[in-house]
């Protein structure tokens, strides 16, 4: 059987709760950006909204896939019927392959989407051809990530460092609590990707990666409420 996860057993399910928080934050931002688009009819807000929506969808796929994987393990342990277990594993493995592929694909596309919207230079040059090319590369990266999970995290590190740099520059131009928090939030999500790569050495890094990522999304949530409270 293929090994799809590196999470320690005691952490199974807890990571999904963490991911639900990320989904809520991504959806809140997506909804508000869409509200701005409806008011202003400016396309960049629509694309920004879609990018966060894709990140939320990516996490939904991750949760569904992880829960299937954890459930499958329980079935294998409690029922000792060899034929039945074999069939279940075959069916769920197909779902796991697709689940992780879609998680990787939507996450990379979502992050690239955020980058294209917030980077003024990229925005000016982002015509349809470049968007198609980037989508194709994201798809390739998602497929390769299935065989070498590091590729997914390296791609994320690359795009997230571009995003964090832009937020950092924005923070330098307009230094407010919200801009500082947004920069720190994306920086933490970037750091979490490094921990996910370190799973290769010790599975406990998965827990650390998930915690850092959760803190990143909570900071993003705080900045969201801070902005809307004003």
């Amino acid at each position: 059987m293929l090994k799809f996860y590196f999470s320690p057993e005691w952490f199974h399910g807890i990571d999904s709760i963490f991911e639900i928080v990320s989904i809520i934050v991504a959806l809140l931002i997506a909804l508000y950006a869409y509200k701005i688009y409806k008011f202003s009819k400016v396309n960049k807000y629509k694309f920004f909204s879609w990018a966060f929506l894709l990140i939320a969808i990516a996490y939904i796929f991750k949760i569904l896939t992880n829960l299937t994987l954890y459930k499958q393990n329980i079935i294998e342990k409690t029922i000792g019927n060899l034929t039945f277990t074999f069939l279940t594993v075959q069916k769920t493995e197909l779902f796991l392959v697709w689940g992780y592929l879609l998680f990787h694909f939507f996450m990379i596309i979502g992050l690239i989407g955020i980058y294209l919207v917030i980077d003024k230079q990229a925005k000016e040059q982002a015509n349809k051809k470049i968007v198609i090319l980037l989508t194709f590369l994201a798809f390739l990266s998602a497929i390769l990530s299935h065989f070498y999970f590091i590729i997914f995290h390296i791609t994320n590190i690359l795009v997230l460092s571009f995003i964090t740099m832009i937020f950092y520059n924005n923070c330098r131009k307009k230094c407010t609590k919200a801009t500082k928090l947004i920069t720190s939030a994306f920086f933490l999500v970037l750091i979490s990707q490094i921990f996910f790569i370190m799973i290769l050495f010790n599975p406990n890094y998965y827990v650390l990666g998930e915690i850092v990522q959760l803190i990143g999304f909570i900071i993003l949530l705080i900045s969201y409420f801070m902005v809307l409270k004003k």
């Binding site: 950006a33 509200k35 008011f39 919200a178 801009t179 902005v227 004003k230």
Partner: peptide, 15 residues
């Protein structure tokens, strides 16, 4: 009032 909030949101994300 809503516009002020939206502007704050878009400025915070550098949009």
């Amino acid at each position: 009032q809503n516009f002020r909030k939206m502007k704050e949101f878009t400025d915070s994300f550098g949009l």
